[in-house]
Design a protein around this nucleic acid. Sequence first.
DNA 1: GTCTATATACAGATAGAC
DNA 2: GTCTATCTGTATATAGAC
Lengths: 183, 183
Amino acid sequence: MSRPPHAREKVLDAFERLLIDEGARAATIDATARAAGVSKGGLLYHFGSREALEAGVVARLNDLVTADVAAMSAAPEGPVAYFLRTSAMDGDPLDRAIIAVSQIAQGGNALALDALHTMREQWAELLEPHTADATALALVLLVSDGLYFNNAIREGGIAGPVPRGEAMSALIALVETATRPAR
Amino acid sequence: MSRPPHAREKVLDAFERLLIDEGARAATIDATARAAGVSKGGLLYHFGSREALEAGVVARLNDLVTADVAAMSAAPEGPVAYFLRTSAMDGDPLDRAIIAVSQIAQGGNALALDALHTMREQWAELLEPHTADATALALVLLVSDGLYFNNAIREGGIAGPVPRGEAMSALIALVETATRPAR
DNA sequence: GTCTATATACAGATAGAC
DNA sequence: GTCTATCTGTATATAGAC
């Protein structure tokens, strides 16, 4: 991965942005090439098919998840707080990748489905010792999913009640109180 | 609305199913007509364009939301428990409509975005007196969103940790304990 | 009210020049 | 490594028969 080709990343960025901001139907190879500032032929040199393009976004997600899991393990505030806070980070590369891959998964791509599944398993495994029981763990994961879902449909001016700043800290405190292990 | 035409409903059912099970890209007019067992021309008699078809699904959601809000107000178990329990009802007409309209909204349809926004506002208004504060209300809404999100990407065998039966009752109890008003 | 046939545009993908 | 040109299939939409 030394000296990664510039165009490849530009194309993945553009594809991701189209998936997030304009939906799966708008994220065509044609539109992606235009948005990335390359020709269709140029794009297809790097990604020989739509499937390869989707696989590229999924691979990028997998890398980001690996880094995220490591960061979550090491977070001073604890995994639960870190997990919830970073679920609402609008514009964060990981969050963007998750939304993009969710769109791809809804189209039936097995790689994308599997990546999301594995990501969730890694999170659950890491959070499990920090929650009181299975119900508490489910609560934490569902709140995180809710934050993603709201991010995903926020486009066009719809402001879901995604908590920011103080409101986010209060939500984290509430969830931690409700889910913390007895000890 | 006396004696509603059969084909119209069949077409909306098929369009919804395609959006949910195969994603926005697969839900074309052609595929919808085939799935509904009518010809493309027949479909386009009832819905003159893709936009009209989308508007039909959105209108159906609006009707279901009106009925749901009424049922939630009257639920013996209380609005919060009713709200969470019905968020995970796989195959429920309302849940299906929400997922379908979310897909449409992601494509940028303003009507769909507005319908989801209004739905959320009605829920928030109804739940507000039954939650301790804004943070507690946000928690309830986010858990519900999480349940929907998991339903939406469950396809293809991915089983998110969507609680059912006993697990669902335990989750409701946990959320209610954490969010119930002081009095 | 539902059909077939067709017009027009755009999708994904390939070939080959530069 | 990136481009233009082009092939083939499919999308949306219209026209007009039944």
